[in-house]
Design a protein around this nucleic acid. Structure first.
Lengths: 225, 225
DNA sequence: TTCTCATCAATTGTCGACAATCGGAGTCGT
DNA sequence: ACGACTCCGATTGTCGACAATTGATGAGAA
């Protein structure tokens, strides 16, 4: 899929991926102090590679480092998530606009079939919100790839993608949004097929706005308890 | 200004900034191999901090690292620049839209005065394309700050900002675009003052599209020789 | 000559130990 | 009792040396 699990490569890369996974899944709590020596021993490596991994994760905004005071897992508060969704709206909207002019017919067909499989998966059973959520990320990234914009692919693939997943792990997605989301996905594919970049961008932006509204409402409901 | 020169801090940060500067100004050629031992000695530090700096620069897309094969300065070819401007259009457009609802009257006034000083600077003399260009970056970043979106500020401030400057160092900006650019800046401030986010976004996007068109034409002209 | 393969220098990846810095416990003085 | 100061433990920052990998060079066979 997206994050290729590098069982091989430099130790720094391995540590980076393992840490990213632990942070995204919540195994490492938000704001938790990351002790270099402890983590290095846990991963069976020296502190050198681990420090490089922390620098990398800092670039991905998964940890926040303070000189001479160590690194901490980032805290995904409400405002940070809000900021994240604004950025995603802008970037994925742009990706969608460009993709409308650059995706091949085949790719658009493939996208359509991907939605078919999602629909099947939903109808057969709840199917687990998790796999549906991962499928959603697949859909979005296929469009980003369709833009042929390497920078967009990097930004949305490597960096934002992890924060996005972290966000979803926290706010376990309510299943009643899968239906309208699928509908919106279909509309987006339709716009892509018609090569209407402006419309595709607008639909994608509304789609992401809707997702954020849903999430923020969920959070507000949770916090009132 | 934006990039604070950290004469103090960790060696890795110092190396990162010095390398970034050397890359942006072209002192280090595009695609040039970056030898760790050599750079470490030049900066008077060990290879540890330097490796961390390289990891950081990799996150900023200023260098490209290949495992077991070293790091190289990124090559800013036409497509990369094109991709960069598409991303900027999306992000700064969004920043502008949000800024229209969140900037204070004072901040907007200040922005207007900034443009006055730019106009003065242009009228008094060509004033050097350089300082005008830096002033332009100032204008853009003030708006990004106005969006109150930390993620946007980070992305456009730390990462894209350097690539942007690198881009300008290569294609020495033609001075005849300063006039229409200033005009467009005025229109954007006007839209912000009227709290018209949609208009402000559209104007900013067109402004950046115009800048890209100007740059790409310059490049095309250069390559024909 | 040209292709293949083995050897080797150069460079990257990694580790352990030392120095510098920070936070906190404890103490002293008011 | 409260505040400030000092000292110490813990943690981060840094360095030098060693191991592993690369690709380059050159020898040898077809």
């Amino acid at each position: 899929m997206l994050q290729s699990p590098p069982q091989q490569g430099t130790l720094a890369d391995i540590a980076s991926h393992r840490l990213a996974h632990s942070i995204v899944t919540g195994e490492l709590a938000q704001g938790q102090k990351l002790n270099e020596a402890e983590l290095a021993e846990r991963f069976g490596m020296g502190r050198g590679p681990l420090r490089e991994a922390l620098r990398h994760l800092e670039g991905m905004r998964l940890v926040k480092r303070i000189p001479n005071a160590g690194a901490r897992v980032v805290v995904l508060d409400f405002k940070t998530m809000s900021d994240l969704y604004a950025v995603r709206e802008a970037l994925e909207g742009m990706a969608c606009r460009i993709a409308a002019t650059r995706m091949t017919e085949d790719e658009i067909d493939q996208l359509s079939r991907l939605l078919d499989s999602h629909e099947m998966q939903i109808k057969q059973q709840g199917g687990g919100v998790y796999s549906q959520s991962e499928g959603d990320l697949d859909f979005h990234f296929q469009i980003v790839r369709g833009s042929r914009n390497e920078m967009l692919m990097d930004m949305l693939g490597s960096e934002q993608y992890q924060l996005q997943r972290m966000c979803r792990y926290r706010t376990s997605r309510n299943a009643q949004r899968t239906q309208p989301a699928l509908q919106q996905h279909r509309q987006i594919v339709e716009a892509l097929a018609q090569r209407d970049g402006e419309l595709a961008e607008m639909l994608m932006r509304r789609h992401i706005q809707g997702a954020w509204r849903s999430i923020s409402e969920t959070i507000a409901k949770k916090e009132q308890i």
